[in-house]
């Protein structure tokens, strides 16, 4: 992750974020479901997932949402503030898949210092897993540019 927080004025619409590749394993799916206190059986019990028509346990929404946030703060740095996450879910993430997360700055709000990042997570087997946007506030350095 980037430990130097980006300044609002250093970011431009169209800037691309460094892609993030996530190896999806049973350990990740189950570990993250439990760490998010989501004990719904389909996220930790393969048999329960199969009864729902999927071959194996699948990633819960809180984890996908968490990766949306992490992907953007990895880029923005630790003094940024996540203000909102919109996520639309597509095909499930299963053990053995690799999800590649990509993103691009889509809007800036000069009044609030909030930057909107469009984010897409695609897995290598079924395609689009998640898409949406993250709104993140970046610090504004007061040296220049503000009157």
């Amino acid at each position: 992750m980037n430990k130097e927080t980006l300044q609002y004025q250093d970011v431009a619409v169209g800037d691309k974020l460094p892609p993030l590749e996530i190896d999806i394993s049973s350990s990740l799916i189950i570990g993250a479901a439990i760490a998010s206190r989501d004990f719904t059986p389909v996220h930790h019990d393969k048999k329960a997932a199969q009864e729902c028509g999927l071959p194996d346990v699948f990633m819960n929404i809180l984890t996908s949402n968490g990766f949306m946030g992490r992907f953007v703060t990895d880029w923005a740095g630790p003094e940024s503030t996540v203000k909102g996450i919109d996520i639309k879910l597509g095909a499930p993430n299963l053990p053995g898949f690799v999800m590649t997360v990509t993103g691009e700055v889509t809007a800036k709000n000069d009044d609030t210092g909030v930057v909107e990042v469009g984010v897409m997570g695609e897995n290598n087997v079924w395609g689009m897993h998640m898409g949406g946007s993250v709104r993140i506030e970046l610090p504004k350095s007061d040296q220049q540019g503000e009157v």
Partner: peptide, 30 residues
């Protein structure tokens, strides 16, 4: 830990205290 999130604002007390966050914060997605 599970999310592989190395943001020091979440886990590094010393860093977080000195940063503009003024101390540990929870990931908003939590």
């Amino acid at each position: 830990e599970v999310m592989g999130d190395e943001n020091p604002a979440y886990t590094d007390e010393e860093y977080a205290a000195k940063s503009s966050k003024g101390g540990i914060i929870a990931p908003p997605s939590m």
